[in-house]
Computed example of a mutant assay.
Amino acid sequence: MTRLIVAAGGGGDAVAAAMLDSALYGHGEPAVILTYAWDRLLVDPVPGPRGPANFTALRPLTPHVWSVAADSQPVAPAGSTLPRLAAELPHTFALIDPHHGAQGITRQLEELIEHLAPESIDLLDVGGDILAQGDEPTLRSPLGDALTLAASAQVNAPIRLLVAGPGLDGEIPATDLRDRLGPCVHSLSAKDVEPISSVLDWHPSEATAMLAATARGIRGRCEVRDAGVAVPLTDDGPNVYMADLDDALNRNRLARAILATSSLEEAEQQSREICGYSEIDYERNKAAWLTTQTAGTLDAAEVLPQLDAFEEAATSRGITHTTFRRLTEALGLNGNQRSGLRDLLITSRPEQYAAPLWQLHR
């Protein structure tokens, strides 16, 4: 028997799906995880999600679904974390192709369900922005979640919507999500994190890093993203809740508007009209800006004083932890330097490494 987990927003949701698969089920073959190849500019310098044409050596699962294998490679200049995930985790990572809109993803789901005959189907979102209305001022990345929600709602099969770590994506505060969540189905523990612990050492997802950190007992306030959003790390962080899929669709204006879309461009235009922006436009603008920037160096004599200044300012804001993505951008480095920065800091100040986060010196 096979399980199917749809990683609603891609990126870190795929890593969380692997963790949840082991935590909730822990038996039989690992789940098939259907996920976007959408790693944002820290990994992929090309704005927007990747499709099958952007990879080599994919494996066919159905006529419209391909899996990413360990020897698959993104076609330059694109980048992707999926081949490395496929190499390090036992799951099958099937590729969501959003370029044919919600209708195309619906077709992919229907083909997978017919092919796999899964014993369970979960739609997983870390943070809970899939439960948004679409006009919240703190919302930053609604499009991927809206597409998977719209597609899942059109499939003639029972799909359970799960939200892990309410508020940990830094978009919709956990307090605003409380009345949209159903029962807690699991509270993640440090033991649950172990199957993906090696992945957390290199994967850039901030929300899943904070999910794992709270499961390991870390509490405080974590600063994330280039904007420096402060995310509370609370006792609710490791919890995984059920939510009603139909209620989520009825609430999510963007998901309802894109139900019949047959291209990513259509869905993106609806996002502009309903949310006031397209997150891919943001990536396009930021990518263009990054080409004009000169990255700093990884010399300890230069980096550590900059880190001290950042930490002093952040602690004055009540921040206790941050992510290596946040540090990379705050210190004027580029995405390719993230792993080098992490190694430098852990070597220099190992006592501050609250895996997979960085604890600020106090």
Results as ranks from 00 to 15, higher is better:
96 I>G: 02
242 M>E: 15
85 L>V: 01
92 T>H: 01
279 E>N: 09
90 P>E: 07
128 G>Y: 07
151 A>L: 01
315 T>F: 02
208 T>S: 05
310 F>S: 02
66 W>G: 00
321 H>I: 01
310 F>R: 09
28 G>P: 09
362 R>V: 01
21 D>N: 11
115 H>V: 02
48 G>D: 04
221 R>E: 09
30 P>M: 09
191 K>Q: 11
56 T>G: 02
347 T>D: 13
43 V>G: 06
71 D>P: 08
18 A>T: 08
351 E>P: 01
106 T>Y: 12
148 T>S: 07
85 L>D: 02
121 I>S: 12
355 A>E: 12
330 A>K: 14
359 Q>I: 00
330 A>D: 12
29 E>N: 13
204 P>Y: 05
339 S>K: 12
213 A>P: 12
107 R>Y: 04
315 T>V: 14
349 R>H: 08
207 A>G: 10
101 G>C: 11
324 F>N: 02
204 P>F: 13
1 M>L: 08
312 E>N: 03
176 D>F: 09
297 T>E: 10
98 P>F: 04
341 L>Q: 03
315 T>W: 04
167 G>C: 09
357 L>K: 12
209 A>Y: 01
75 V>G: 05
250 N>G: 14
72 S>E: 08
91 H>I: 00
72 S>T: 09
298 L>E: 14
282 Y>W: 15
114 E>R: 14
160 R>T: 14
190 A>F: 02
184 C>A: 13
281 D>N: 13
299 D>N: 15
297 T>G: 11
195 P>A: 07
15 V>G: 05
278 S>E: 05
254 L>S: 03
240 V>L: 09
140 R>A: 15
308 D>L: 13
262 S>N: 10
17 A>F: 00
11 G>K: 07
150 A>V: 04
66 W>L: 06
40 R>N: 06
6 V>G: 08
148 T>K: 03
99 H>D: 05
306 Q>V: 00
258 I>S: 03
26 G>L: 04
27 H>M: 01
